[in-house]
């Protein structure tokens, strides 16, 4: 396959950045999108040019490192996949493909297509955990009965890999799906319940502080999420936060 890539190049956080065009030849349809970029980078290095910076790690869809807004969609066309799971057979010979970084005030570009998603870590650190007293009276988690439905929903929420596709896709740049998944995962389980109010308030406060936009229920995040996290979790966060706000002392 021969492709024309239009890729965002930005030398650093303070650089203005611009789209540049790169032709790539000899692309196999069995390559993943990241492997195709590896081929392009090899070519750039051979030509003595600066290779394109992009995030990647496990390359099997579970780490959340790879990002990329491809042809106007987070992780490109296809549902329930990350960019490393996107294969070139999804494109046609001669296609022009736009490749851009996640666009969000809260995810500043480090270089080219790599963004700083530290905002998610700070939301998580604000309350996305269970404080357990480990001084000798620890109860085996399996000894606590949990309804199957709750366990399943908590697990669905826990599949969030924190890639940021929800933010990138949302026309408002909102981080609600991520924050909702993290709040849901814990508030559904007995271990997470004691801190549920404090958690909902603290995580939303941090989310707002990071400069993410306001959710307007477009549902775009749910469609583009590589882990198919449901909008039900956003509704749960809305309930958790409402209850916490109204009963707060």
């Amino acid at each position: 396959m021969k492709l024309k890539l239009k890729i965002w190049r930005q030398n650093g956080p303070s650089d203005k950045g611009r789209m540049e065009t790169y032709p790539v030849n000899d692309v196999s349809e069995d390559m993943s999108f990241l492997e195709m970029l590896d081929v392009l980078n090899d070519q750039l290095v051979r030509d003595g040019k600066d290779p394109i910076a992009f995030d990647h790690d496990c390359r099997e869809g579970i780490c959340g490192a790879c990002s990329l807004f491809i042809n106007g969609e987070a992780h490109g066309p296809g549902r329930g996949i990350t960019t490393c799971q996107l294969h070139m057979r999804k494109f046609k010979d001669g296609d022009t493909i736009y490749v851009e970084p996640w666009r969000s005030a809260a995810f500043p570009v480090i270089k080219d297509l790599a963004t700083n998603r530290g905002a998610f870590d700070r939301i998580q650190a604000a309350g996305g955990f269970v404080s357990v007293n480990t001084s000798g009276n620890l109860v085996d988690g399996n000894a606590v009965p949990i309804p199957k439905d709750d366990a399943d929903k908590a697990f669905d929420a826990a599949t969030c890999i924190g890639c940021g596709a929800c933010v990138a896709t949302c026309p408002n740049g909102s981080a609600m799906l991520f924050t909702a998944a993290k709040v849901s995962q814990l508030s559904l389980l007995p271990q997470g319940k004691p801190e549920r109010k404090r958690r909902a308030l603290a995580m939303v406060e941090q989310m707002d502080k990071e400069g993410f936009g306001n959710c307007s229920n477009t549902g775009a995040c749910e469609v583009e999420c590589p882990k198919n996290i449901s909008l039900e979790h956003i509704a749960r966060l809305n309930r958790e936060y409402l209850a916490a706000t109204v009963t707060k002392e």
Binding site: T169, P171, N172, V223
Partner: peptide, 21 residues
């Protein structure tokens, strides 16, 4: 206004029809 500020640089290509009304 806040939502606009949350995305200071717009996408060159955005396929909005793929995921929202």
């Amino acid at each position: 206004i806040q939502n606009r500020k949350a995305r200071p640089v717009r996408y060159a290509k955005e396929n909005a029809g793929a995921n929202r009304s």
